[in-house]
Design a protein around this nucleic acid. Structure first.
Lengths: 228, 228
DNA sequence: CAGGATTGTGTAATTTATACACTAAGTAGG
DNA sequence: CCTACTTAGTGTATAAATTACACAATCCTG
């Protein structure tokens, strides 16, 4: 970036900068995405992921956090940059470049609220999305792929689960994201062998059956490993 | 992105949008990066990677291609988006968001030229870079990691090599990028087993020794595979 | 105390990855 | 012409990782 270097032919006007946030959760063993319905303007009542413009002198991460907090009532989640989308026609109202972020949350620890900014805010199944405004379908498809591959070589699944969980729940998260079933014994062997998780002394019993041991992640910070 | 929806508290002014392009090549068995020296302004004579502002109604890829063509005399190379950098302090002259692209080229097929835009344009060793302007050091570090991991699970090495090449040359590219030596027999076994390359009927002889068979990539388009 | 439901566990077979050293083909120089 | 030099080219044995697969343990309920 060497604009303002007084060289000829630098554009004077550049596109607007926005951020959009793609929030995943696994609920009832299904991969879900948090969608909002737009209140007014050209895209009134269309579905989209939460987003908004970046202010000058505001970092992209800060803008994403601010927008989630202001518009979706969501605070303190870990955001990771996904990619940037800049097709001039992506927004019919004028050229904007959107930096997409993605986040993983556990829906039990997370309370999105409908605000004055949106007509609605709801979890939708990732494999049965309504028609989306802007290029948000593209952003979501790209994000789903990223999530699938990151699950396979990192420990980010921790962000989708509560502190303590059963191995059955962990496996269900993997299966929901990857869209395929996994072998129970091999899965359990692996996650313990690589020290992705470790067992606690606690157990949980839900039905009329053997209680399950509860596990925790050995690290709850992003980390590169090899899982599947 | 739902600005201009007449909601309160949308910023009126957003940062400028720039693109920067990180161009890699392997020359003399060393990983190199194409750097420019800035002509004038606050960063006069500092080293940087080529870049410039994006015009409204211009896509990010088009902006990157245009800038490379105008400023570095380089046309028709494959660009892939790397990441976007938006720290308000990354450019002391004002807040700009830079979408970084990265490209791989074979230096024999590629002719960067010093233009009126830059004081200089040269290949520098990736592991011995001069002090860089802006946050370009960060962009380069990030790009090097991306390159290393992509080499291991995709066929992008094709972009670093000419159409026909020897397996010794291919291995040298892998070794330069990964910064470690590889076993000759295992490497050759692998690249043929997974059909990354196939042999031609041609050979090449450089010194007073046995001529080498020439190989080509089975596909010269980006493709996901597992190599190392 | 029998039946139902979910948790939890081990081993053998296959595939993949690694370590490792010599022969083949050509040129150059005596 | 034949020896020495240089780079190309090849196979096998071992170790490690992945896959496939079935039944016993624990708890509650009726």
């Amino acid at each position: 970036m060497h604009h303002k270097t007084n060289n000829s032919s630098e554009p004077k006007k550049t596109p607007a900068v926005a951020v959009d946030t793609l929030i995943f959760s696994v609920i009832d063993n299904k991969l879900k995405i948090l969608l909002i319905r737009i209140l007014g303007g050209a895209y009134k009542n269309k579905w989209a992921i939460p987003g908004g413009l970046v202010a000058t002198n505001e970092s992209l991460e800060k803008a994403a956090s601010r927008i989630l907090s202001q518009k979706a009532g969501v605070d303190g989640i870990y955001l990771e940059q996904l990619a940037t989308f800049g097709d001039p026609k992506r927004d019919s109202r004028g050229h904007s470049v959107s930096v997409a972020y993605f986040a993983l949350v556990n829906d039990k620890l997370f309370y999105p609220k409908t605000t004055e900014y949106y007509a609605d805010i709801v979890w939708k199944n990732a494999d049965a999305l309504p028609p989306m405004a802007f290029d948000h379908k593209k952003i979501i498809e790209y994000g789903k792929e990223r999530l699938m591959s990151k699950l396979a070589y990192s420990n980010i699944a921790y962000a989708l689960l509560p502190k303590e969980f059963t191995l059955t729940e962990l496996q269900a998260v993997y299966e929901a994201v990857l869209g395929k079933t996994l072998d129970k014994r091999n899965f359990r062997k692996k996650v313990q062998e690589i020290e992705l998780v470790k067992e606690t002394t606690h157990t949980r019993q839900l039905g009329a059956n053997r209680p399950a041991k509860l596990f925790i992640f050995t690290q709850r910070h992003p980390r590169i490993i090899d899982i599947l």
